[in-house]
């Protein structure tokens, strides 16, 4: 069942001569993590702003839970959580006060302190946010998105500025949210996040979706059907490449496995970084 069904979505900013989003179609199924990927300025954030109703007057159709998005009022946000790319807190309030300020506006509340504990901010809950590091502010951003026990999470560059340990905590929480039945739209240019989280992805460039599938399927599609074997010889490391299609019947390959001192075996499956560069024609700076 699709939670979001987007058809022919287009948007043009005032004073701009080009479409920021141009005839975009995609679906987000219930319980999946859908990644919207692309270089800066490709249209990811604009699409997310439309889906969170921050931008109106779009062309095309956006159906949310069987109802056109335009017809929803402010109650749309009761079961939606939004994690912004930049910190969005009152610097002179403490972390806890910030969370209380926003949670107060929802009908459904979840206990704040366990969430702060999960992201490692409980000890700093009474400290002013102005004294937080960027990573702490980003973790607080994520907690803010979960305050109302949402069914759907919009996350924009959610691990931006986090060290690997804290990034993993956030990614594990996203996976736990999914396991509990939640749905996520993840907007990012960090392919590591995509690998770890996304069930399906769409690549967006110049406002249009140019490729969409599961990460696995894309890696196979854009990869080479080969197997590289590296093994030790008297001259050092030697690499030999085999065709993946008949590798099981390839005597040279089987013989190599039996006799050589194998160091590595890799399939020709490509990485998402390479696909990103190939599809978007952009340099990958993740």
């Amino acid at each position: 069942m699709a939670v979001f069904e987007v058809q022919g979505l287009s948007y043009q900013y005032q004073k701009s001569h080009t479409q920021a989003v141009n005839q975009v179609d995609f679906k987000i199924e219930k319980g999946e993590i859908f990644g919207l990927l692309g270089p800066s300025g490709a249209g990811k954030s604009t699409t997310q702003k439309i889906l969170t109703k921050l931008l109106e007057h779009y062309q095309g159709s956006v159906i949310y839970n069987d109802q056109e998005l335009r017809t929803y009022g402010a109650d749309f946000y009761e079961k939606i959580g939004v994690g912004f790319e930049l910190p969005v807190h009152f610097n002179k309030l403490s972390g806890l006060e910030n969370m209380q300020f926003f949670q107060n506006l929802y009908k459904t509340h979840v206990p704040i302190e366990p969430l702060l504990e999960q992201v490692g901010l409980l000890a700093d809950k009474d400290k002013r946010v102005g004294e937080y590091s960027k990573g702490m502010k980003m973790r607080l951003n994520f907690v803010r998105a979960l305050l109302n026990d949402p069914d759907f999470l919009f996350l924009d560059e959610v691990t931006n500025g986090l060290d690997p340990k804290n990034a993993k905590i956030i990614k594990d929480m996203i996976l736990a949210f999914k396991a509990a039945g939640g749905t996520v739209l993840l907007t990012t240019h960090l392919m590591g996040d995509v690998e770890a989280l996304c069930d399906r992805v769409a690549f967006i460039k110049n406002g249009a979706i140019i490729e969409s599938d599961t990460p696995k399927a894309l890696k196979i599609k854009y990869g080479e059907r080969i197997v590289d074997v590296e093994y030790k010889t008297d001259k050092g490391l030697t690499k030999q490449t085999f065709d993946l299609s008949d590798v099981g019947k390839n005597d040279a390959f089987i013989q190599l496995l039996k006799t050589a001192d194998i160091q590595t075996i890799h399939s020709g499956e490509t990485s998402l970084e390479d696909i990103f560069i190939l599809i978007t024609g952009d340099t990958y700076d993740g």
Partner: peptide
Amino acid sequence: EENTLKPLLVTPVSTGQ
């Protein structure tokens, strides 16, 4: 400057409110 206007817009509070 603190980016706190935007998150209020994604809560169940209307612009008029």
